[in-house]
């Protein structure tokens, strides 16, 4: 059965980094609750375009929770009210009828605003660049079955490797720390035999890069784990802190 819902939106509008932004109010009436939040914004944008206004800019692409493009605050919460869910997988059935929903970009120094709800997360690419890789060039790889990996290690490494780089953990942290993002990468590679040769180098380089990108230190509040759409455990941060490097 299709249910209907009406929502008021309070959305951060900012034309560019150099121009000051502000909240604007929009009402959307009689929407199907089977619509996703982003589809509701698509609908709102169509109305804005027809009226000659600038549509609301938000990052998105796969709309199935895996590319990590989408991400902003919904009522102050990164990715909104539903656990283990990116914004693109948030449906209107997760909201209450006739309420106001506030949408605003990640508020993090290391993620400058580009426009409206879009921020620049290239600092995450630079973190990976600083050491988040293994060392082998193409053509030099040994037979994959020579390196045996236990099921537990493979799965544990995989779980850490599922991080989609959306930045929610950083947006949720009062210190804007990138500890969970970095710990997840270190845990992904550090638990596999092929990640051993650069292990301590990787740890020290990525930690150093966190500081140069002006991410804060871990606030120990575990908000990162709570908002992570891939449910990556904050235990990896303690694991990282016990690593050499």
């Amino acid at each position: 059965m299709i249910k209907r819902i009406s929502l008021n939106f309070r959305i951060w509008r900012q034309k560019s980094q150099s121009i000051k932004g502000r909240f604007e109010y929009y009402a959307l009436k009689d929407l199907s609750t089977d619509l996703s939040l982003l589809e509701a914004l698509d609908k709102l944008n169509e109305e804005l375009i027809i009226n000659g206004d600038r549509p609301i800019n938000f990052d998105h692409d796969c709309r199935e929770g895996i590319c990590g493009s989408c991400g902003f605050l919904v009522n102050g919460q990164p990715h909104g009210p539903k656990d283990a869910t990116t914004i693109c997988q948030l449906y209107l059935r997760n909201f209450r009828d006739q309420t106001t929903v506030t949408l605003e970009p990640w508020k993090v120094k290391a993620f400058p605003v580009i426009q409206d709800l879009v921020v620049d997360r290239s600092s995450l690419d630079r973190l990976i660049m600083s050491g988040g890789a293994c060392s082998d060039d193409v053509g030099k790889a040994p037979d994959a079955n020579l390196l045996k990996v236990s099921q537990d290690d493979a799965f544990s490494s995989f779980e850490a490797a599922t991080c989609i780089g959306c930045g929610a953990c950083i947006a949720s942290c009062r210190n804007a720390s990138a500890s969970l993002f970095v710990a997840a990468k270190l845990a992904h590679l550090g638990q596999l035999p092929q990640g051993q040769s650069l292990r301590s180098e990787r740890t020290s380089q990525m930690k150093q890069q966190m500081i140069s990108e002006k991410f804060g230190s871990c606030s120990n509040n575990l908000d990162c784990e709570a908002v992570c759409p891939k449910e990556i455990s904050a235990n990896w941060i303690s694991w990282m802190n016990s690593e050499d490097g």
């Binding site: 890789a133 293994c134 082998d136 193409v138 053509g139 030099k140 790889a141 040994p142 037979d143 994959a144 079955n145 390196l147 045996k148 990996v149 236990s150 099921q151 493979a154 799965f155 490494s157 995989f158 490797a161 992904h188 590679l189 596999l192 092929q194 990640g195």
Partner: peptide
């Protein structure tokens, strides 16, 4: 082989293969 060398965490059997 190349993917495993890069650290792709493929699923494994009990014997580690």
């Amino acid at each position: 082989d190349q993917c495993v060398a890069q650290g792709v965490p493929f699923a494994r059997e009990y014997d580690g293969l």
